[in-house]
């Protein structure tokens, strides 16, 4: 069985072909990072226009790379939300057209849930597990009972973690994407140079807040200035504060639900300091922490296809009028 997976929820147009839920026949991600670097962020109209220009070519490329034809596709799996609605609609409409033309079922996928199960592209993981999905648009802790059943335990109340990184990088004029650039500066700095706040770290819930941390950095820079000497230290201290909260709250969710497995996904999950912190803390607490490979941490069509596979196996497909959405329902 061959599943065609499409993701256009943010800046990448991604298409993948997945066989029997396991074998990736092709997985193409058109990174638009170069375009966005010019603007210091994802530029939405450019993003949706680019998706329109790219999606057909990328789909054809994926089909060719897989060595199949459109007629071999059995199921079309596509991100319906959450994300940038204009971009999502491009992928969703393309998928609907394909579903009609090929007369094959369509499955609308929750992008966050797909990040949480993307690990199945690489290995098996026993359920239940705690998933942290952390990226430029999302910061969510999920309790995954099965690929299809999950509870949202916590989420950000203001900025996503990656968004705070992007905004700080833009504020300092050091480029885009912020996460990767800040990681490079942070590696050269002292992480205990400034004790920035760890927002909500002691609150009795699994929610996050990164906007107060962002404000604290800006206040610090306004007060003390930033030089080529201290920029590494400031950014290292900022990164450490953000990661302390992410690690501690996710580990706490694991401990309090007595679930000894954590899966971390999303773009920020490819940060090596975050990995190090999770592995260290996990080891102390006897919790297994599993990360996707970096190329499956970023948005990709393969994770959309693998979740589509789980739905299809259970006999669940979507109606052709499935709606796109920008926000995830939390309750």
């Amino acid at each position: 069985m061959i599943i065609f997976g499409i993701d256009t929820s943010c800046d990448d147009t991604s298409v993948a072909l997945l066989e029997d839920g396991k074998r990736i026949l092709s997985n193409i991600v058109s990174s638009q990072v170069d375009l966005h670097r010019l603007f210091g962020g994802v530029v939405p109209e450019i993003a949706s226009r680019k998706h329109i220009e790219l999606i057909e070519n990328i789909s054809r490329g994926a089909i060719e790379e897989a060595g199949i034809t459109y007629q071999n596709i059995d199921v079309i799996s596509v991100t319906a939300g959450p994300g940038l609605i204009g971009s999502i609609l491009v992928g969703l409409c393309f998928a609907k057209g394909l579903s009609l033309a090929l007369n094959k079922p369509l499955i609308g996928i929750n992008h966050i849930q797909a990040h949480a199960v993307s690990i199945f592209l690489e290995r098996e993981v026993d359920f239940p597990f705690i998933a942290l999905v952390v990226s430029g648009g999302h910061t969510v802790i999920l309790l995954m009972e099965s690929p299809l059943r999950f509870k949202v335990l916590g989420t950000t109340r203001d900025d996503a973690a990656g968004e705070a990184f992007d905004k700080i990088a833009k504020y300092l004029g050091i480029g885009y994407p912020g996460g990767k650039i800040i990681e490079e500066y942070a590696e050269k700095g002292q992480k205990d140079y400034v004790r920035f706040p760890r927002p909500m770290i002691n609150d009795n819930n699994y929610d996050f807040s990164f906007s107060g941390l962002k404000t604290a950095i800006i206040n610090y820079i306004k007060k003390y200035g930033v030089t080529t000497q201290n920029i590494n230290d400031i950014l290292s201290s900022f990164q450490e504060a953000a990661f302390d909260v992410l690690t501690l709250k996710t580990i706490r969710a694991s401990r309090e639900h007595d679930i000894k497995r954590i899966v971390v996904g999303g773009g920020v999950a490819s940060n090596s300091r975050l990995r190090e912190k999770f592995l260290e803390t996990g080891q102390k607490e006897n919790i297994e922490v599993i990360f996707s490979s970096p190329h499956f941490c970023t948005d990709n069509g393969a994770m959309i296809a693998v979740l589509g596979y789980f739905y299809f196996k259970e006999g669940i497909v979507s109606p052709l009028d499935v709606k796109g959405y920008s926000r995830m329902m939390l309750h």
């Binding site: 939405p44 959450p82 940038l84 996503a160 968004e163 926000r327």
Partner: peptide, 8 residues
């Protein structure tokens, strides 16, 4: 939450 990512 901040709509910077989703615009609306």
């Amino acid at each position: 939450v901040s709509p910077s990512f989703t615009i609306v």
